[in-house]
Nucleic acid binder design. Structure first.
Lengths: 197, 197
DNA sequence: TGTACATCAGTGAACGCGCGTTCACTGATGTAC
DNA sequence: TGTACATCAGTGAACGCGCGTTCACTGATGTAC
């Protein structure tokens, strides 16, 4: 343990620079979006020279990929917890999905490739985590719809939550009560927009 | 009319440089995405010096805004046509929406703010066109659901098509037959994911 | 317990790059007389 | 019909900027003996 004592003078060796870089990168991502994710700015925030980052990451892309992996892992956890709360219920899974995106808008965008294509397509770990998310989604739906209908239902639910999350993140909706709007939309996922009569 | 004859030698005065810049910008957008939209590259493609663009646009942001306006106008047209094809039918409107995004993925992303925040938030013309799109959507739904349910239904349908469009654009779905997948998802918008029994 | 030394994790300076934009200019156009 | 001239729409050179990355280096750490 050679980390600086909190409040103490900075030491030459940071102790856990990798972690510190990722934390600063996430903050930057949330403050200014994926397009502003830059190696020099990340290093600046940690209080370290830019080249120091190269002892922990191959390049800037690698930082983006690590962030995307982190994000997918956290989201998979949340969805697993929601599934445990009630397989076959749309509200818990849908709300968990949208809530994650709303709590981490910059990260969520990065996870879907904005700014860094490598972050959504270049990593086997990301691909594996996405498969896990997909499996959670289908497991939840298997309790509700016939087996042959599960793939379409999963794409339906994913599209709905993905789109809703992005619209809310972007401030495209002017809903006075966003949580209520989210619940209303998810309720429609269950009933559909049935024709009258 | 002082435009160069097709195939003829380029003239000093272009004739319709503004239009040519926008056309080149759209091509660039589709080839390399919003992040790669650059003034110098646009000018290069038209075969003109970069400063020439400043006679037609205040700056790069203004080009992005003009593209976003163009995109929203085209999309509004398509949705109006779909509404005419059958108010209250989800398939025509949903398919038109997703088809537009799939045909113009780079433009669609720009319209929702990727790369240039100004393109989705900085223009009154964009805001007006978006309101028009929203009005078309709600008009289509008013024929199908009770008046008090229209706002939630519209957000539902918008979220679904927006999310589906982006997932397809990003190649996140591995559907063998994308059109069939789109139809299946839109069918579920009508019926919902009803609980068994 | 002390010391030599390999290894690890930082540093500052510098590289080349491409960008958006500004500047002073020149060539082309169209209009008034 | 011809000519002077204002205006418009281009040009090339240059600006400053911030970026990702490389380099040769130095300070700190930990391990073998």
């Amino acid at each position: 343990m050679n980390r600086s004592a909190p409040g103490g003078p900075p030491r030459y060796h940071h102790g856990d620079l990798r972690r510190a870089l990722l934390t600063a990168a996430r903050a930057l991502l949330e403050e200014r979006g994926p397009a502003a994710l830059g190696l020099r700015e990340i290093a600046r925030r940690v209080g370290v020279s830019a080249p120091a980052a190269y002892h922990h990451f191959e390049n800037l892309d690698a930082i983006a990929v690590a962030l995307a992996e982190e994000g997918h892992a956290e989201m998979a956890e949340r969805l697993d917890a929601a599934l445990a709360a009630g397989a076959g219920l749309l509200a818990p899974m849908g709300e968990a999905y949208v809530a994650f995106a709303r709590a981490n808008p910059g990260l969520y965008r990065l996870m879907y490739g904005e700014g860094f294509h490598a972050a959504s397509a270049g990593s086997e770990a990301v691909a594996a985590l996405r498969r896990r998310t997909w499996a959670t989604l289908t497991a939840g739906l298997a309790a509700r719809v016939p087996a042959e209908a599960v793939p379409a239902a999963a794409l339906f639910l994913w599209s709905l939550t993905h789109g809703l999350a992005l619209l809310m993140i972007d401030g495209q909706t002017d809903a006075a009560d966003p949580e209520a709007a989210i619940r209303a939309v998810l309720r429609l996922a269950g009933t559909g927009l049935a024709k009258p009569g």
